[in-house]
Every structure is written in C-alpha cells, then in structure tokens.
C-alpha cells in the first residue's frame, strides 16, 4: 500500500517539476533580454536539483544527494559569472 502511495506522489511531483523546468526553459529560449535568459537558466538549475532529489527518494539511495549538491553549487557559480559578465562585459577583472 505505502510504496504505491509514495510511488504515485513521487511521479506527480516529478511531472510538476518537469512542467516547472519547461516554463524555465521557455523563459530561457524567449528572453527577450540576456538577464531574462540568465534568470531562466538559474531557475532551471534549481528545478533540476529538486528533480534529482525526488529521484533519490524513489531509489532510496543517498547517492543522488551529492549530485544535487554539486548541481546547486555549479548553478550558483555559473549564474554569478554570467551576472558579472552582464555588469562589466568580462568575467575576470
């Protein structure tokens, strides 16, 4: 009984997160300006991280946790570099 409840709700959460990723990707594709695209990319990263966490709950292993942590940190570094680029036109001063 309970694996079924959990399985269905994880599937529901994954579908919702997939839609969330689709909206973020749409914003990334449509723009219209560079900063809109970057914020879309950043949201995409966070949503992907949450998707990995739900995968981890389904499989019952904590391996996915490390991947999620790395995605979260890489997303942060990438977005900061891009924002810096918007501000100055170069990343390393």
């Amino acid at each position: 009984m309970s694996p079924m409840i959990l399985g269905w709700s994880i599937t529901a959460a994954q579908v919702l997160l997939a839609f969330a990723m689709a909206f973020a990707a749409l914003r990334f594709i449509r723009g219209p300006r560079a900063q809109d695209r970057i914020i879309g990319l950043d949201t995409f990263y966070v949503n992907a991280m949450l998707m990995l966490l739900t995968l981890g709950i389904r499989s019952g292993t904590t391996l996915y946790f490390e991947a999620a942590l790395i995605i979260g940190l890489l997303g942060f570094v990438g977005t900061v570099a891009l924002a810096k680029f918007l501000m100055r036109g170069e990343v390393i001063e």
Binding site: I5, L6, W8, S9, I10, A12, A13, Q14, L16, L17, F19, A20, M21, F23, A24, R27, I39, G40, T43, V46, N47, L50, T54, I57
Partner: peptide
C-alpha cells in the same frame, strides 16, 4: 508524499510566474 508534492507545486507556481 505531502511534502514533496507541495514542494513541487510551489516550485511550479514560481516557474509559471517566471
């Protein structure tokens, strides 16, 4: 189930807002 569905829903609303 409750926590992950609520979390996914809130995330979806945020992305819809985007």
């Amino acid at each position: 189930s409750f926590f992950i569905v609520v979390g996914a829903l809130v995330t979806l609303i945020g992305s819809i807002g985007l």
